[in-house]
Computed example of a mutant assay.
Amino acid sequence: MAAGVKNMVIAILVPLPSLLFFFSFVRPTTTPSPVSSWCAAHPLLVANLLFLFNVDLLFWLIGNLLSNHWLIDLYWTVIPVMLLHYYRAHPAAVADTARSAVAVALTWVWSARLTHNYLRREGWQWGKREDWRFAEMRGQYGRAWWWMSFFAVYLSQQVFLIGICLPMYAIHSTTQPWGAWDVVATMACLAGIVIAHFADTQLHRFVTTNEKLKKVGEATVATMEAGLWRYSRHPNYFGEQLWWWGLYLFAWNIGQPWMVVGPLVNSLCLGYVTVLVERRMVKQEHRAEAYKLYQKRTSVWIPWFRKPVPQPYNHKDSSNQNSLKISHS
């Protein structure tokens, strides 16, 4: 309990340096300082510098002190909201009112859903554990992990988060009026949020049920194959990617197609994570056989109809059937 309270306090306090700095240079003054003028002229560069010092360095130091890099997982759901409001409130911001309002509403809903899922998965405990991939890398790098973690956990996350949030900057850099493609982008974002919510909820129920069965000594279910998981092996990943690609459509619609680099790199990285997750699943003896069959029958990301699994060929049966056909002819 004491550790959870300590982690909650840390989580609340860590963004204060960025918040205080931001409010200091956006505060209207009659004689702006050279620093505030420079910040006003370089919104993207300032966002990267704040991320470097407040997240990469501060989170890294805290993670090493606690021997647990859990903060970045929690802030994955918060940093996009902070970036959106940074771009929206920046002195250089200009935007169509409707597009800006929709982007704010969608991002808050996305963040609330993902934060709820994160805390629910962790049993409503702050800093209960770090991502299993970080834990594995800790073992792989050994003594070098204290400095390798800066690049593997934090600097890489800066590239991903700043990249996929670029459409939020684009939305607040033009007054181009709301159009039909904005409607498409909105629908894609909403669909992604809804799909990810139901997929994560179904997975949570599956895990919770298995934990209860294990406690009473009953057999657990090897593979999740109900609901959306019947049509996709990773519907939660699909929903999350649909959200980011829907957000990109806003940027594409207002003449910033190059921002595709953000969701594209994120999708490629999530593809690699998918491979790691599935390798981990087939290494578990109690579910390896069932999961391999699940892989053969079910689409990886995009929900689709299940494939029929061919029955193993039995030469003896085939010969008998042929003999019967010959005898009846």
Rank of each mutant, 00 (worst) to 15 (best):
residue 94 V to L: 13
residue 304 W to T: 11
residue 207 V to F: 12
residue 268 L to F: 14
residue 2 A to I: 15
residue 178 W to V: 04
residue 168 M to N: 09
residue 29 T to P: 03
residue 74 L to T: 10
residue 168 M to C: 08
residue 69 H to D: 13
residue 135 A to F: 05
residue 151 F to L: 14
residue 5 V to S: 07
residue 157 Q to S: 13
residue 140 Q to F: 12
residue 234 H to N: 13
residue 316 K to F: 14
residue 311 Q to L: 10
residue 91 P to C: 10
residue 75 Y to I: 05
residue 50 L to D: 05
residue 212 K to D: 00
residue 160 F to Y: 14
residue 219 A to T: 08
residue 155 L to Q: 10
residue 74 L to V: 14
residue 313 Y to D: 09
residue 170 A to L: 07
residue 239 G to P: 05
residue 48 N to I: 08
residue 308 P to A: 12
residue 267 S to R: 09
residue 127 G to E: 00
residue 36 S to C: 06
residue 143 R to G: 12
residue 114 L to S: 08
residue 263 P to E: 02
residue 190 L to P: 00
residue 313 Y to A: 06
residue 59 F to A: 01
residue 11 A to N: 02
residue 291 Y to P: 00
residue 304 W to M: 15
residue 25 F to K: 03
residue 298 T to G: 00
residue 255 G to P: 00
residue 28 P to L: 13
residue 311 Q to G: 06
residue 201 T to P: 06
residue 156 S to K: 13
residue 166 L to Q: 04
residue 24 S to D: 12
residue 176 Q to P: 06
residue 145 W to V: 00
residue 322 N to D: 14
residue 27 R to Q: 11
residue 123 G to H: 04
residue 267 S to Y: 08
residue 102 V to H: 04
residue 311 Q to K: 09
residue 217 G to K: 06
residue 201 T to S: 14
residue 10 I to R: 03
residue 126 W to F: 10
residue 21 F to D: 04
residue 207 V to C: 05
residue 325 K to Q: 12
residue 206 F to M: 09
residue 309 V to I: 13
residue 11 A to T: 05
residue 81 V to T: 10
residue 60 W to A: 00
residue 125 Q to S: 14
residue 64 N to P: 06
residue 239 G to C: 08
residue 315 H to A: 15
residue 313 Y to E: 03
residue 131 D to F: 12
residue 267 S to C: 10
residue 136 E to K: 15
residue 170 A to H: 03
residue 311 Q to Y: 06
residue 316 K to V: 12
residue 42 H to A: 03
residue 272 Y to H: 13
residue 218 E to T: 05
residue 281 M to D: 00
residue 180 A to K: 09
residue 237 Y to Q: 08
residue 230 R to Y: 04
residue 61 L to Y: 15
residue 98 A to K: 13
residue 175 T to I: 07
residue 216 V to I: 13
residue 214 K to H: 06
residue 294 Y to F: 08
residue 164 I to V: 12
residue 133 R to M: 07
residue 311 Q to V: 10
residue 298 T to V: 10
residue 83 L to F: 14
residue 22 F to Y: 11
residue 19 L to T: 02
residue 225 E to H: 08
residue 150 F to Q: 07
residue 52 L to I: 06
residue 285 E to H: 14
residue 303 P to C: 10
residue 25 F to S: 03
residue 95 A to L: 12
residue 192 G to H: 02
residue 241 Q to V: 11
residue 181 W to R: 12
residue 101 A to C: 04
residue 58 L to G: 02
residue 193 I to N: 04
residue 116 H to T: 15
residue 243 W to C: 04
residue 8 M to T: 14
residue 195 I to V: 15
residue 85 H to L: 15
residue 96 D to K: 09
residue 122 E to Y: 09
residue 163 G to P: 00
residue 248 Y to A: 04
residue 250 F to L: 06
residue 295 Q to L: 05
residue 277 V to Y: 08
residue 289 E to G: 08
residue 172 H to D: 00
residue 264 L to H: 04
residue 153 V to P: 03
residue 294 Y to P: 00
residue 87 Y to G: 01
residue 14 V to D: 00
